[in-house]
Amino acid sequence: MPPKSTPAQTSAPASTNALQTLWQAYNDQTSNRLKFIDSFLIFLMLSGIVQFLYCVLVTTYPYNAFLAGFSSTVGQFVLTASLRSQVNPENKNEFKEVSPERAFADFALGSIVLHFFVFNFLG
């Protein structure tokens, strides 16, 4: 009896099970608000990856444009991720001082400053 085949057979469904469980747990336990933030994060990540690949594979020539575009996605990702951690109800003990409204105001202000620099650097 080949010992390897059994774990291989069992591990594949186990991993799919794990992913499915994770996905279900995420769907069930995450509020819509956080899901909305997550979808924005995924959009930023994809946008950044596309720009990076374009820069590496096609051209670096307007390097300042690459830096501006790429750093805008990275910066926006960081700001959004911090917004997510601050408004997550599970982190309430960590951010006692910061109300969700205050967190959003910080996020908005930081983003506006970021976009100001990005558009200055883009051309």
Binding site: S47, G48, Q51, Y54, C55, G69, T73, Q76, H115, F119
Partner: peptide, 10 residues
Amino acid sequence: PFYIGAISTS
């Protein structure tokens, strides 16, 4: 692509 990236982020 970089302009679109920056504008779409905004």
